[in-house]
Design a protein around this nucleic acid. Structure first.
Lengths: 354, 354
DNA sequence: CTGAAAGCGCTTACAG
DNA sequence: CTGAAAGCGCTTACAG
């Protein structure tokens, strides 16, 4: 039996130098060839790549990070793991990033700006290559951290309001940000409300929990739609800061039915609430949508299985995760994305509950 | 205005040497003091810690990983993100690990042994400090990878069968593994079946999807219970390899009702299937539990909100995530956990569907 | 218990 | 286009 050629190193790892030696070039050249830096002879690239594959060379991420001051980590900050919306976002982003050799590090903020800032601070010490962060609203401390570290960053699931967008005369690169991919939460809230109006509903409640910034934007859309037809009434706003859940949806439904028997539709800010309401309606024997229509938001798992099936707004979260990751990848490479704000839209899914 | 004392380094980062200089000791001592290595004068430790806090020193993870050949990453491999079971596991593990300064890196195997092996290989290149992996069944390639890299590893959500456990006369450390924390899937399957028998059910279907190893262990428990009272019938086994979902649960329910009208109970291997069945029963106007009882597994979100509320097995996934992370932390520190196999049990939640 | 020195495995000005 | 050299910021035998 032939002894396998041993590496010189104590660790036994195949290193860049091993490859360089075997290929008869300098380590610098191997480094450049493998990273696809231009300014390397194509023939050398070929040779280096083939040798490194033969030896089974795998670059050491720690050494690379130390030398280049940039890791192969991308941090993604999401509010919650208990809303499948964010899990879908995470999975899509992670899949996209992994395909390009990046590791995804997830942080859960629990909708808490302080926790977000803390996570940001922790993560920034690891010199992430990029940052994916949910929403556009962050503490001034967080904003400072992001700016000072000037790490590429893409915001998820929302877009700046029209009115707040800069109407610069000459838009230069620096004014392009913030980079974000999502859709207009306000428009989506307005669209569903208009749909309900189209179903001839007049007393449409907006029922929300959690009350995060995106929920409040949907509320704004609901208000806009109702005001435009002079049907807005502040009493129709049911805002509960508690975390969203099926159980809470059921509870809110009961309360609304008891206190506002004349209501003819309820637009819940998230499908879990709406699903809970549908289940409660069943228990309480309230006819949906005849007595009261019910609509949700996000088109989460199970909404199509409810009885009656839930009318809702389908949001492109997997697409958002993927597109945002791709945009981030561009920024990491120093490229300029075609659009700084990518609008992926939404879709009204008319089923039978409204 | 006083200029802030600048670091010598080009990167501007506060380094170990900065702390050493300010504290009047050598870098080696700072390194040892900060990592809580014994064999350092307590007074020096105090001084070093206070100076490093004053300077806002944060160790560079990349440099540390490169020098020590161990990163501060822990890899967790789970089958899916679409089953909240695994999300709960992930969140608990990540929370526990983060508190001790470890970063959690997640890999999604999609119940595919090949993908698991690939993820393992990728992750191992990053020299993780430890590994959390779902289940006990892995490809021989994966097992080899884990063994060769001798990275501390804890298995999640299952325990070795009694019969397969080594009955060593003198158990030494090497024979303690595999480390795992979970509960007996077989016993849980058996317990729920016995509960249904106790409800005077005679024709109890086991309806399963996905058919991963843990589902098959539940099946085994169901068989054991039915055989013990001579009520086992192979026709009662409904095994569908498709991914689990609400919709599939509904479909399976319809099929079972059509083809086996004499069935008086269905034990679904997961709550999503059972929830789908409950919803289908409602559509089809089948009385639950009078005509047919329905039971699930895991006690997932929403099961208590169904109508009727779902009888199920509550599994301690958050506790598993936390306990496994703690056990892994011990292994990383070189400590020996009290038990190599930690049984966290399960609980029958008798609600109204069975 | 403490320190000087070597080394971890890369990247990147700098020079040619 | 290529290479020699310095450097990234730590840890860890080794010696004392």
């Amino acid at each position: 039996m032939l002894a396998r050629p041993k590496s010189q190193r104590a660790t036994g790892r195949i290193t860049l130098s091993d490859v360089a030696q075997a290929a008869g070039v300098s380590p610098s050249t191997v480094s450049r060839a493998l990273r696809g830096e231009r300014a390397v002879d194509p023939l050398l690239i070929e040779r280096v790549v083939s040798v490194s594959e033969k030896l089974g060379y795998v670059p050491d991420p720690a050494a690379r990070a130390l030398a280049s001051q940039r890791s192969d980590h991308v941090t993604i900050l999401i509010p919650l793991l208990s809303n499948t919306l964010f899990v879908d976002l995470l999975e899509a982003a992670q899949r996209t990033l992994r395909a390009e050799g990046y590791q995804t590090l997830m942080g859960v903020t629990h909708y808490d700006a302080g926790e977000e800032e803390l996570l940001l601070r922790e993560q920034l010490h690891h010199r992430p290559a990029g940052l994916l962060i949910t929403g556009l609203n962050h503490s001034s401390g967080s904003q400072r951290l992001m700016a000072r570290n000037k790490v590429p960053c893409v915001h998820l699931m929302d877009l700046p309001d029209e009115e707040s967008r800069p109407v610069a005369e000459s838009v230069n690169e620096a004014e392009l940000g913030p980079y974000c991919v999502g859709f207009s939460q306000t428009d989506a809230g307005e669209a569903m409300t208009r749909y309900l109006l189209g179903q001839n509903k007049k007393r449409i409640v907006f029922a929300a929990a959690q009350l995060d910034p995106r929920v409040m934007r949907r509320l704004k859309g609901w208000r806009r739609a109702l005001k435009s037809v002079d049907l807005h009434d502040p009493h129709l706003e049911w805002l509960n800061p508690a975390p969203s859940s099926l159980a809470l949806g059921g509870l809110m439904f009961e309360q609304i039915m008891k206190q506002c028997p004349d209501v003819d539709a309820i637009f819940f800010c998230n499908d879990d609430l709406a699903q809970g309401a549908l289940l409660a309606a069943m228990r309480l024997n309230v006819a949906v949508p005849q007595k009261v229509a019910i609509a949700g938001f996000n088109d989460l798992m199970g909404s199509d299985q409810m009885w009656p099936p839930l009318t809702t707004v389908r949001t492109p979260r997997a697409q958002v995760g993927e597109a945002a990751a791709k945009m981030l990848l561009q920024l990491i490479r120093g490229e300029v994305p075609e659009q700084a704000q990518l609008n992926l839209g939404f879709q009204i899914i008319a089923r039978q509950s409204a």
